Amino acid sequence: MADQLTEEQIAEFKEAFSLFDKDGDGTITTKELGTVMRSLGQNPTEAELQDMINEVDADGNGTIDFPEFLTMMARKMKDTDSEEEIREAFRVFDKDGNGYISAAELRHVMTNLGEKLTDEEVDEMIREADIDGDGQVNYEEFVQMMTAK
């Protein structure tokens, strides 16, 4: 299944994987998964984290390695993001709930994920998604960005 991913997608997933893999040992533990999910405003229980890991832990060693992570991402993409997942993601970014993602809100979430971005990089990300040019990202623009192939 992971063989249907483009090189660009694999590179993006590698970057995402390293955000989860806090200690850089090449595997994601339940603790690391929990840290990232909490930084995104989720509050999973230990059991939920274990279930999430077990779902993709092909070799049964209790952690997720990069090939397992790729399989999980490929699977998720095949079920292409349901509207509800996209709306949920939008809410994570839209901290003040005004229906727009500002540069400050984007920077806040990315920083929580451990991504240190310059102001230019954040502005560039907003510009790429900002179709109507108002300097922020509304829900429609967010959907376009998330579903762009």
Rank of each mutant, 00 (worst) to 15 (best):
F90R: 01
M72E: 02
V36F: 13
E12Q: 13
A74L: 04
M37I: 12
D94H: 10
G97P: 00
D51G: 11
E120W: 10
E7Y: 05
D94F: 02
M125W: 00
T27C: 02
E141W: 04
T45Y: 02
F90K: 04
R87Y: 12
F142H: 06
V36Y: 00
E141T: 15
G60E: 00
S18P: 11
A2L: 09
E7H: 03
D3W: 05
E124W: 10
E8Q: 01
T71N: 09
A16D: 04
L19H: 04
A129Q: 05
M37V: 13
I126L: 11
V56W: 05
D119E: 14
Q144S: 14
I86N: 09
N98C: 07
A16T: 11
D65K: 07
E88H: 05
G133I: 00
F69Y: 08
M52S: 07
D96H: 05
I131T: 13
D79T: 02
G24P: 03
N112M: 07
G99N: 08
G97C: 10
G34D: 02
E46R: 10
T147P: 12
K149I: 09
M145C: 08
M77D: 09
G135D: 05
D59R: 10
L33D: 00
Q9K: 10
E120N: 11
L49I: 08
K149Q: 05
L106Q: 03
L113R: 01
F142R: 05
P67H: 10
G114A: 05
Q9F: 15
F66H: 04
L49H: 15
Y139Q: 01
N61L: 03
E105P: 05
M72C: 08
L113F: 12
T118R: 09
M125Y: 04
S39M: 10
T30H: 04
E121H: 05
L5V: 09
K31I: 12
L40N: 15
N138M: 08
T27A: 13
G26Y: 04
T29C: 04
I126A: 05
E12A: 15
V137S: 06
N138A: 08
R75M: 14
F90Q: 08
D23P: 03
Q50Y: 15
F17W: 02
E7C: 06
V56Q: 12
D65E: 12
N138P: 15
A129W: 04
E128G: 11
M73V: 13
D23R: 08
G97N: 10
R87C: 12
F66N: 04
T147Y: 07
T6C: 04
F69A: 04
T80D: 07
N98Y: 10
T118G: 01
I101K: 00
T27K: 04
D123R: 11
N112K: 07
E105Y: 06
M1P: 08
A2I: 05
G26F: 09
E46L: 09
M52A: 00
D23K: 15
I131R: 13
E32P: 01
D25L: 04
T35W: 11
I126C: 04
M145Q: 14
S39A: 10
V137K: 02
L117Q: 07
T63I: 13
D79E: 11
F66E: 00
L70H: 01
P44M: 01
A2T: 12
D51M: 05
G62T: 01
G99A: 05
K31G: 10
E120P: 15
T118C: 00
L5D: 05
T147Q: 10
G97D: 12
G135P: 07
E84L: 09
I86P: 09
E46P: 15
E12K: 11
M52F: 01
Q9W: 15
V137N: 07
M77C: 08
T71I: 13
I28P: 00
M37R: 08
G135H: 05
K78W: 01
D21R: 09
E68P: 03
D23G: 13
T118W: 02
D25G: 12
R91I: 03
T29V: 15
D96Q: 15
D119C: 15
G99V: 09
D21E: 14
T63K: 08
K95A: 00
A58S: 08
E140D: 09
V36K: 00
G114E: 04
T63G: 11
H108L: 12
M77Q: 15
T147N: 14
F93Y: 11
R107E: 06
I101L: 12
D3Q: 15
D96C: 15
G99Y: 10
T71Q: 09
D134C: 09
V56T: 04
E83P: 02
T30Q: 07
D25H: 07
L33N: 00
A129R: 06
A74P: 09
M77L: 12
R127S: 08
D94W: 02
D21Y: 11
E121T: 01
E115S: 05
N43M: 08
A103H: 06
G41W: 10
V143N: 03
M146D: 07
L5N: 02
N54P: 08
T71H: 06
R38V: 13
E120F: 14
K31D: 02
E48Y: 11
D23T: 00
V92W: 08
E88N: 15
D96N: 13
D3E: 12
E68N: 10
E83K: 11
N61Y: 09
N61P: 05
E83H: 13
A58T: 13
V36R: 01
M52P: 11
A11S: 10
G114I: 07
D57M: 07
G135Q: 03
T111E: 14
E105M: 07
F90N: 15
M1T: 09
M146K: 05
E83Y: 03
R127K: 10
E85D: 07
V143L: 12
V137Q: 04
V137G: 04
L113K: 03
E105D: 12
E85K: 04
K95E: 11
R87N: 09
E88Q: 11
A58L: 01
R91V: 05
T45Q: 15
F13R: 01
P67D: 07
